[in-house]
């Protein structure tokens, strides 16, 4: 049964983390004065002796988390997505990716999801940054059920992970039977005319775009890629082969994120038109979340137009 009350994704994370803390005593949480925002507050209340707050110090946040992992614990390291990607960039590169430590980096407020704070607080390219680090798994969650499932999987996975979350309100489109598998994409809806590939909370818009396309008699396949790295190349190639053109959708810079990843795989294996929906290499601004997504060309109509464009290019290429 799907619980379809709209809820911010971070709340689902907070609840799931506190729940997981019960079954896995090795889980510890490190935060940088953001527990109310990241929602690690739920874990903190339940397990104060396994919760560490280093204050506003993100390099130290990552270093302390890594140090905890070296004693056999499984740290979940939390702050804003942009702070963990940039301010803590070197600790993440050196201590997490290069040293291959078993830590879970959690980036809250991904994309434009903290929009009223403006461009400084919007994370426009954490996926691009994290994807460029060897050995780091990069995941972007789309709904509450999926967050729960992701946490269980990454806690068991022995290696470094970056998980991008969001403050956006979302409704479930997965149900509890759909278990997340690291490195596996999900064929949400099959189709023959075009493949829409999305990641993260923008999936709700991707699904709406597929419905609009259907009303215009374009049968779009919808693929969700929760794990941007390692990428499910097989599924992407199969669907590109079947439909002949692709649109990628993400709340991240079109440079270096999912769109780039998909384009890289297809250009080396099965060149078909790929049109990317995402932040078009610019900073955002203050504004209501949904309106910002529309203004910055991540609207349902943008996805629909992109699909038509990709199909047009495909036809031209013959």
């Amino acid at each position: 049964m799907k619980n379809n009350n709209p809820k911010q994704l971070r709340f689902a994370y907070g609840e799931a983390l506190a729940e997981l803390g019960e079954s896995n005593p090795k889980i510890v949480v490190v935060d940088a004065d953001m527990a109310e925002g990241t929602r690690t507050i739920d874990f903190k209340r339940k397990f104060p002796e396994r919760f560490y707050d280093v204050g506003i110090a993100e390099q130290n946040l990552v270093g302390v988390g890594v140090g905890l992992s070296l004693t056999g614990l499984i740290p979940f390291i939390n702050t804003f997505a942009w702070l963990i990607s940039w301010r803590a960039g070197d600790p993440v590169r050196t201590l997490v990716a290069y040293a291959k430590t078993n830590v879970k980096l959690i980036g809250g407020y991904g994309g434009f999801s903290g929009p009223m704070d403006g461009a400084t607080h919007e994370s426009i390219a954490d996926i691009s940054v994290m994807r460029s680090l060897p050995g780091l798994a990069v995941i972007s969650a789309s709904d509450h059920e999926q967050v729960k499932s992701i946490l269980t999987v990454i806690a068991d996975y022995d290696g470094p992970v970056y998980l991008r979350l969001s403050r956006a309100e979302v409704i479930n489109f997965h149900d509890s039977s759909q278990q997340f598998k690291l490195g596996k994409g999900i064929l949400i809806k099959d189709g023959n005319d075009i493949t829409l590939i999305g990641t993260g909370t923008i999936m709700s818009r991707v699904l709406k775009a597929a419905t609009v396309l259907q009303s215009e008699e374009i049968n779009a396949a919808v693929v969700e890629i929760p794990t941007i790295k390692p990428l499910d190349k097989e599924l992407i190639i199969t669907m590109a082969d079947k439909t002949g053109s692709v649109v990628t959708c993400e709340e991240n810079n079109i440079i270096g994120g999912l769109g780039s990843a998909v384009a890289e795989v297809l250009s080396e294996n099965l060149p078909v038109p790929v049109v990317r929906i995402g932040i078009r290499d610019c900073f955002g601004e203050t504004g209501p979340y949904d309106k910002l997504l529309d203004k910055y060309e991540m609207g349902v109509k943008d996805i629909v137009e992109a699909a038509k464009k990709a199909m047009r290019i495909s036809r031209t290429l013959g």
Partner: peptide
């Protein structure tokens, strides 16, 4: 622990001492 980029060992050692 792998090291070289300066300063990071300080944080790592704090985390380990906590753990």
């Amino acid at each position: 622990m792998s090291s070289g980029p300066l300063g990071l060992g300080a944080s790592v050692s704090v985390g380990t001492a906590l753990g």
